[in-house]
Design a binder for these strands. Structure first.
Lengths: 203, 203
DNA sequence: CCCAGTCTGGACTGTCAAGTCCATTAGATA
DNA sequence: TATCTAATGGACTTGACAGTCCAGACTGGG
């Protein structure tokens, strides 16, 4: 629970600034390595403001988890709603790989990173992350389902499982990309995945 | 560098105990949440012993990374050397899924977890983790290559890429398993991967 | 313009962790 | 047995961090 939800525009802006700054720092260094002083500095907010808007660090982290999942989904806006055609899926895959190249293979997946850091430490965060990944996966599952309905995907294919495999390849590919500092790793993973999806093409 | 490498059996035992205790704690709570006092308590060693054998926490963590990769590979001993047949690959996949069921989907992959925690924070650790994953992947790549030589895999297939996709599916499947607390996620990911591998079967 | 509620700055406290130091014990070797 | 070195215990220092507190500034509805 927030200690205070801001009722003025200024307050809301400050709260947003705090969350954004925290999310950035968490992305750069990981949750554990971010101190509230760091956050205050980057957000141009004093310590007391942090405690004015969040009851403690955990609550701030939860807000960051939510903001991060929203940001990841928003960043894919325009792509996730068109996963019901082979071209749409290709565009999505290409965009994901391009993003890793632009980022020089740093940081991995913001949600996946949070997962690794929080899953065993904070059950509430784990649930929120699972939810975020679920929403992400749902876009693909629903796209594949529509394709099946339109006869583009074999009737025997299982859209739910295909969506899960794809998420696994994506997350795993991002992990390999991050560890090896090589965006090609994601490319290879998604290429494999594409082959698998095409194998479920309606004949 | 170690401050001191133990020259007596007792010293070696202590050093081992420290590494093992740290690895356990890191697996349970994550790197950042483990203090040297915790380690001392679990390893039955005083603070000064930690500094006798390791120059600082980072060096201890590096030792843990090495020990963890060795442990993960050792745990798959008897499986990794037989990835040159469809049956061998099936046995491997099954064992991985069974392990997650036994562990109630907790902890994910020890190496993958370390990757998420250290990749952006400790370049040396990142390199060590990349090396460990590389050795892991090499077993599969070499197995697939042998299969190709024996005509079990299509000549057009690319063992290196197939091995990479498989590692991605494995790591991603483990991440989903961990976040969703559901071992079935790994099963689905590996089943998809199996389908992909079979698609590269020699006709 | 007033003032109640909102927002903000920064000093302060308690806790805990990393890393240092030194005195002591155990063990090997001659 | 004497002696040297490895190994150990634990107190101590230093610094950083989470969280508290309170006084002062701002703001918007009356």
């Amino acid at each position: 629970m927030s200690t205070t939800s801001p009722s003025t525009a200024k307050g809301r802006a400050t709260r947003e600034r705090i969350i954004r700054a925290t999310a950035e720092l968490v992305g750069e260094r990981g949750v554990a390595a971010v101190s509230l002083d760091d956050v205050g500095r980057r957000a141009q907010a004093s310590r007391s403001q942090l405690y004015h808007y969040f009851s403690d660090k955990d609550e701030l982290v939860h807000a960051v988890v939510d903001a991060t999942t929203e940001a990841v989904l928003a960043a894919q806006d325009g792509l996730l709603d068109h996963l019901d055609s082979w071209a749409g899926i290709d565009r999505w895959f290409d965009a994901l790989v391009r993003l890793q190249r632009d980022r020089q293979a740093r940081g991995g997946c913001p949600i996946g990173s949070l997962a690794g850091q929080l899953a065993e430490r904070d059950p509430q965060a784990r649930a929120a992350i699972a939810d975020g990944l679920g929403r992400w996966e749902a876009h693909l599952r629903e796209g594949l389902t529509r394709m099946q309905e339109r006869g583009k995907l074999a009737p025997t294919a299982d859209p739910a499982k295909l969506a899960t495999v794809t998420m696994a390849a994506l997350q795993g590919g991002l992990l390999l990309t991050q560890v090896r500092r090589d965006p090609e790793q994601l490319q290879i993973a998604l290429d494999g995945c594409r082959t698998l999806l095409h194998a479920a093409r309606a004949k």
